[in-house]
Design a protein around this nucleic acid. Structure first.
Lengths: 143, 143
DNA sequence: GTAGGTGCAAAGAGTTTGCATACGC
DNA sequence: GCGTATGCAAACTCTTTGCACCTAC
């Protein structure tokens, strides 16, 4: 997997540093969104000398190259991060455990076109996030 | 209109103060989302002695009573606010002028049910926001 | 009169930047 | 060796809170 990330960095004209690969591997290893803090706390276990501003600048740079995606969802006031996927997905976000389920496919492309044309609006993208409770949390909540 | 807001405050068991009514009227008068700063700057023109923390606490309280809705969208890192509407709407948000167009109707209720059942997820709500350029901005951008 | 609302000032949390040093190419 | 990446520390922005005074009910 690291090889894939090295390739992506090279393609983007970025140097392959251990810190960048570390951040990418952390993002790849998790299935939920991560905050700057989350990533830093995981990173420092592997590279004790890494600093917060390095993680900050790595995420900023990877975002600007569309290798990482910034996410603003209602489970946190902080900016969260995930690896950018080529495929268009939406999210089911558990309000309790904050697990994120990626849902492939998109039901609204036709609708988007219709609304855009009705309102003379040029669409560039959309966000669709669902909030609720995953099966485990739903069960525990009822106890 | 103020009478309507007075009624809502009373119903929520909140005192009717001039500051609260002012904040509500400011939110009502605008068609875009407003940040704390925006609201404070408009408020201080009418009530020069109002303080930032008052506006902050008013918005917090109105949000908790579902009279005002907090909105997190990608045009600002700040929390934005709008009056809560009873009807379920989605937004077209202009990335250039930040105008917000409310779109009634929702194309995804059926889809939501299908996805929820497929993933054993209990849905409570969803966000669907469209980003792009309104007609005026699209025209100007091409100049 | 009393409970709740407000103003002021300061603290917290999260984010961003400047600069000297270290490292990838 | 050159130019970019990093570490450290401090600044900045936005948000939140404590406390004394004030106002709606």
């Amino acid at each position: 997997m690291s090889q894939y990330f090295e390739k992506r960095l090279t393609e983007a004209g970025l140097k392959k540093t251990k810190h960048r690969l570390l951040v990418l591997n952390i993002l790849n290893a998790t299935k939920t969104f991560l905050s700057m803090d989350d990533i830093f706390n995981q990173a420092i276990k592997v590279e004790p000398t890494i600093s917060f501003s390095t993680v900050y600048r790595i995420l900023e740079m990877l975002s600007s190259h569309h290798i990482v995606k910034e996410v603003n969802v209602d489970i946190s006031k902080q900016t969260l991060y995930e690896l950018a996927h080529d495929d268009h997905t939406h999210h089911l976000i558990c309000l309790r455990c904050h697990k994120v389920i990626h849902v492939e496919g998109c039901p609204i492309h036709d609708y988007q076109d219709a609304v855009a044309s009705k309102h003379n609006f040029t669409m560039t993208n959309h966000n669709l996030d669902f909030y609720g409770y995953c099966k485990q949390c739903e069960t525990q909540q009822n106890k």
